[in-house]
Computed example of a mutant assay.
Amino acid sequence: MSKKRQITIVDIAEAAGVSIATVSNVLNRRNVPMTPETIRKVEQTAEQLGYRRNVMAASLSRKKSYELGMLVPVFGGYHGQFAEEMQRMAHGYGYHLSVFSAAGFDPEIEKRHLDVLLQRRVDGLICHGLAMSQEATRHLVGEGTPLVLFNAWGWPNDIAVGAVNLDFVDGCDEAVRHLYEQGCRTIVYLAKTSLYATDLQRRAGFRNGLSKLPEPVPYDMIDSDEVETIDQALEQVERLWNREAPVGILGFDDVISLAFMSAVQRRGYRVPEDFRIAGINNDPVTTVCHPMLTSLDIPYALQAEMTMMLMLEALGDTRALKQSPADEARKLKRIGHEIQIPLRLIARRSSIAEALE
Rank of each mutant, 00 (worst) to 15 (best):
I9H: 05
A13Y: 02
I20K: 15
A21R: 12
S24T: 07
R29P: 02
P36Q: 14
T38A: 12
T38K: 11
K41F: 11
V42G: 10
E43M: 11
A46Y: 05
G50T: 07
G50M: 09
R53G: 13
K64V: 06
V74T: 15
F75I: 08
Y93A: 13
G104I: 02
P107M: 10
D123V: 08
M132W: 01
S133Y: 06
E135D: 15
E143T: 10
L147S: 04
F150Y: 14
P156M: 02
I159W: 00
L179H: 03
L179P: 01
T186Q: 04
A197F: 11
A197N: 10
T198R: 07
R203D: 08
N208C: 08
G209H: 11
K212N: 11
M221W: 07
V227T: 08
E228F: 11
I230M: 15
E235V: 04
R239A: 11
W241I: 00
E244T: 04
A245Q: 05
G248F: 06
I249D: 00
D253G: 11
D254V: 00
D254Q: 05
A263P: 00
R266W: 11
R266A: 13
G268W: 01
D274W: 04
G279Y: 02
N281P: 12
N282K: 09
L293S: 07
L296I: 07
L302P: 06
Q303H: 07
A304T: 04
M306V: 05
M311G: 06
L312E: 05
E313P: 00
R319I: 00
K322S: 09
A329G: 04
I335F: 07
Q340N: 03
L343P: 03
R344V: 12
R349T: 15
S351E: 10
E354S: 12
E357F: 09
